[in-house]
Every structure is written in C-alpha cells, then in structure tokens.
C-alpha cells in the first residue's frame, strides 16, 4: 500500500469524512522522484464542528503520528466543517513552493 493510501485509510477510519483528499505533493519538493514525503490533506468532517483549527490539526497529527515520525516530512492540512466547505465552494488553498531546505 502506498503511503498516500495509508494516510487516506487511517484518516477515514478515525474520523467521519464528508470529503477527503490526500494529495502527494512530493514532486514539487527537493526530494528524489517517486518520494512520499510531502502531502496535503483536505478534509471535511462533522468532527470539526465547534473546533478551533489547532484542535483539528492536532487530531490529524495524532492519527498520523507514526507516519510523521517515519519520514512523512510535510503535511499541509485544510480542515473544514460542511458549512465552511460550502463557503469555500469546495476549493482548498495551494501549498507554497519549496525553498529547498529540507
């Protein structure tokens, strides 16, 4: 199973997901081709109702703690409740370009 699939599965198992996208952005960074180091997660979940962003992000960091310790280097997170997602019109922000530092 690719790391991308694993991340997807772990999040889907842990939280109710209305919408979940896990995008491998490693090819935009200073790592060898085919790497699984930089990911972006877009998650719309009822679990986030009345939760501050930092609480939402901490939850996902916990779910992926093992992966983050074993080489998952960057994890961009865009977390929304259903209402927020509708306001966003289903569009999560772009990740910034790499600066090479690792």
């Amino acid at each position: 199973m690719s790391l991308q699939e694993k991340i997807e599965q772990k999040i889907a198992d842990a939280l109710p997901c209305k919408h979940l996208e896990v995008i491998n952005e490693s090819n935009k960074h200073n790592v060898p081709p085919g790497s699984e180091s930089h990911f972006k997660v877009v998650l719309v979940s009822d679990a986030f109702d009345d939760q501050k962003l930092i609480v939402r992000h901490r939850q996902i960091n916990k779910i992926l703690a093992e992966e983050l310790e074993q080489g998952l280097h960057a994890l961009a997170m865009h977390t929304y409740t259903e209402t927020e997602w509708r306001e966003q019109q289903g569009d999560a922000p772009m990740s910034p370009p790499c600066r090479g530092g690792g």
Binding site: A74, A76, S95, P96, P97, C98, R99, G100, G101, G102
Partner: peptide
C-alpha cells in the same frame, strides 16, 4: 532567506 515554502509564507 527562508529554506522552506511553508516557513517563507
């Protein structure tokens, strides 16, 4: 001179 896009932003 940020060395990472997330730090730069």
């Amino acid at each position: 001179q940020p060395q990472c896009g997330f730090s730069a932003q």
